[in-house]
C-alpha cells in the first residue's frame, strides 16, 4: 500500500514533522526523517471521524499523527468507536437530517404531552402528605402578601355554603385533608382555586356573583375535583420539572423563582378542567343538586368576565368554556329525564 501523507507532533514541541503512514499486518508503519518505525496498531487510539475533518492518531507515549480527513482511517484500528462512526455516517446525510428534525419535534411533543404528566401524577401520588401541606402553607403565605384579606361574606352565608359542601367532601377518602377558606382579593375578581394539599380558596367576588348557594357549591365541587385529582400538585411538579430541564439546557436559573406561585395561576389544561367538571357533575348529582347549577355558574362567570374585561376574554379559551357549559347542561337534562 502507498504511504498516506500525515503530520507528526511529538507532544513535547509544537513543531510539525511531515511523515507517511501505512498499515502493515498488525502494525502501523511510520516513515519519518529518521527512517521507518513500526507501532502495534492495538496501542494506537484513533479519534472518531467527524465532518471529513483531519483525524488524529494518538500513539503510545503521547505523540500524535494528524491525517487529512479525505480517508476515514478509523477501520484500521480496533479501538475505534462504533457508536460515533455510526453517528458520523448519520451526520453526513441530508435525508437523515430532515428525519432527525421530525423525530426531535415528535419526541419533544410526546414527552411534553404524555411522559411529563404521567411522571407528575406518579410523583404526586407518591409524595408524603407533609410535603403537600408545606407547599400549601407557602401558597397561603404568598396569598397574604398578594393582598388577600379576611372575607366579608357574613358568617351565616359562609356556614350555609359549608354545610352544603361538607357531604361531598365526607364521601371521599381522607376527608380531613380537604379544607375550604373564604377570602377577599379585590385585585383578582370572581375566582376560586385549589391549592396543593387539598386546600380550597373561594373569593368574596365569586360568592357575591353567584346569587344561589347551589351555584357556589357547584363551583366548589369543581375545585374539589381539582383537589381530588391532585391537579395543583401535578401542575406544580410539571412546571418545576420543565423549569429544571430548561434551566439546565439553557443555563439560567431565573425560571426557578416562580415555582411557588403555581396553583394561583391555575392555567389548567383542558383535560384537567374536564376531569374536574366530571367530578363536579357526579358529586352534585349524588348530593341531589342539578348539574345545571354548574352550567349556570359558568354562564354567569362568562358574562361577568365578558362585560368587565375584554382583555381576559380575548385570552381565555372561550370555545372550551362554551363546551363545558353545554356538557353540564346536558348532564342536568339527562339527570332530569332519569327521574
Amino acid at each position: 500500500m502507498d504511504w498516506l501523507s500525515a503530520t507528526y507532533y511529538s507532544g513535547g514541541s509544537s513543531a510539525p514533522v511531515a511523515v507517511g503512514i501505512r498499515p502493515a499486518g498488525d502494525l502501523l508503519e511510520l516513515k519519518g526523517p529518521d527512517g521507518v518505525k513500526q507501532i502495534a496498531r492495538d496501542d494506537i487510539t484513533v479519534e472518531p471521524p467527524l465532518a471529513g475533518m483531519p483525524q488524529h492518531l494518538r500513539l503510545p507515549g503521547g505523540a500524535q499523527i494528524e491525517v487529512d480527513g479525505s480517508v476515514d482511517i478509523s477501520p484500521w484500528f480496533s479501538t475505534h468507536s462504533r457508536l460515533e462512526r455510526f453517528v458520523n455516517w448519520l451526520e453526513r446525510r441530508w435525508p437523515i437530517a430532515i428525519a432527525s428534525l421530525a423525530i426531535t419535534v415528535v419526541t419533544v411533543w410526546a414527552l411534553y404531552t404524555f411522559a411529563l404528566p404521567a411522571a407528575a401524577t406518579l410523583a404526586a401520588d407518591a409524595m408524603p402528605m407533609s410535603w403537600k401541606r408545606s407547599v400549601s402553607e407557602q401558597s397561603v403565605k404568598m396569598l397574604r402578601q398578594l393582598g388577600f384579606f379576611s372575607s366579608r361574606i357574613d358568617e351565616a352565608r359562609q356556614e350555609a355554603i359549608r354545610e352544603r359542601f361538607a357531604p361531598m367532601v365526607a364521601k371521599l377518602d381522607n376527608p380531613e385533608q380537604y379544607s375550604l377558606e373564604f377570602r377577599r382579593a379585590p385585585v383578582i375578581g370572581p375566582n376560586a382555586f385549589a391549592l396543593p394539599g387539598g386546600r380550597m380558596v373561594v373569593l368574596d367576588a365569586l360568592v357575591e356573583l353567584t346569587q344561589e348557594d347551589d351555584e357556589i357549591v357547584a363551583i366548589l365541587a369543581h375545585e374539589l375535583g381539582h383537589a381530588y385529582h391532585q391537579h395543583p400538585m401535578r401542575m406544580a411538579l410539571q412546571s418545576s420539572a420543565l423549569g429544571i430541564i430548561t434551566t439546565v439546557a439553557v443555563g439560567d436559573a431565573s425560571g426557578l423563582a416562580s415555582v411557588p406561585l403555581i396553583g394561583l395561576q391555575a392555567n389548567y389544561s383542558r383535560e384537567f378542567e374536564s376531569e374536574a367538571d366530571d367530578f363536579a357533575i357526579a358529586a352534585l348529582r349524588e348530593a341531589g343538586i342539578s348539574p345545571q347549577a354548574l352550567a349556570n355558574a359558568f354562564t354567569r362567570l362568562r358574562d361577568e368576565l365578558n362585560i368587565k374585561d375584554e382583555e381576559t376574554s380575548f385570552l381565555s379559551s372561550h370555545p372550551a368554556l362554551e363546551e363545558r357549559i353545554l356538557k353540564a347542561a346536558k348532564a342536568a337534562k339527562a339527570g332530569a329525564a332519569e327521574k
Binding site: 467527524l50 465532518a51 475533518m53 457508536l83 460515533e84 453517528v87 448519520l90 451526520e91 453526513r92 446525510r93 441530508w94 437523515i96 437530517a97 432527525s100 428534525l101 423525530i103 426531535t104 419526541t107 419533544v108 414527552l111
Partner: peptide
Amino acid sequence: RIWIVNIALSVITLGIYSAWATVRTRRY
C-alpha cells in the same frame, strides 16, 4: 446536519447522549 442528528439522539435518549453531542459539536 451534525446539530440536528445529535439533538435527535439526545432527545430520544432523554438527555444522556447530550454529553456526546456536546463533544462532537465542540470538536467540529
